[in-house]
Amino acid sequence: MTATDVDTRALKFSIDEWFVVTLARTIRDREAVFHGFGSPCAQVAMHVARHTHARDMLLVEGATYAVNPDPAFIPPTGNDLALQRGATYQMRFEEFFDAAVRGDIDRMFLSGGQIDQWGNTNVTAVGAVNAPPKVKLGGGGGGCNLAATIRNLTLWTTRHGSGRTLVEACDFITDMGHRMHGTTREELGFRGNGPEWLVTELGVFDFVGGRARLRQVFPDISVEQVRAATGFPLEVAGDLRTVPLPSAVELAALRAADPLKVRHQEFSKDQLARVFEHRPDKTCAC
């Protein structure tokens, strides 16, 4: 075996790729899954899942509402004909939202400028609610209804490290998590289960008793770094582990799905410098 052969067997990947594969793994096979607009990482993750472990999922392509399309590339906008390639059917706007509010959609990806420990997200405004905002964000799309009824939610952010994203309490709750202003989703009669996962560029949280708990970390990040970047008291799982490595098949699916690398839009240059290498003779990617 030559040195070149060894190199091609080694998996090299950057944080955006590992992050998107981790998002993809929150999807179970045979789920009906939706992402909103302005969500390149979630969008790519859905195509990775459909080409690897979730081949029989129902993929609803964002703001085009195309069912199981096979785009040649993911464009930088969420409402483009390029996203509909290969779809045999496109839902109407009404058709998708009706399915979602009556409980037929299994999973949706949600993000936010702020996310609190209960999985509430803020995509509306930073600052006081009853005054002009400090920063007006874009808005929540369908989130403040869909978060009540879609079966499971995968939350994500690529800005955990900023220290401003995972906060004690959202300045404004756009999309509902497990507990809003002291009231639980059960008390409000919501039929969806709420946030199941929160994936960040530092690690992966699950929700226990409605509260976020660190379950996995990336190998170049320490728990102390996560704690320092988190605005709420950090709970850590007793069996905390490293985020499982992406497989060669997952990386290939991701690179094929996203040749324009729209996923990079969610990462800073510094973050993209986080490159990992995994050789078959080693057990970790450190």
Binding site: G78, P132, L137, G138, G139
Partner: peptide, 22 residues
């Protein structure tokens, strides 16, 4: 439900400025 230019080009500049100025 949303005003902006997605992750690609970011927040809507005039909308944001007017909202923040009240």
């Amino acid at each position: 439900s949303y005003v902006g230019f997605e992750q690609d080009l970011g927040l809507a500049p005039a909308y944001r400025r007017a909202a923040q100025a009240g």
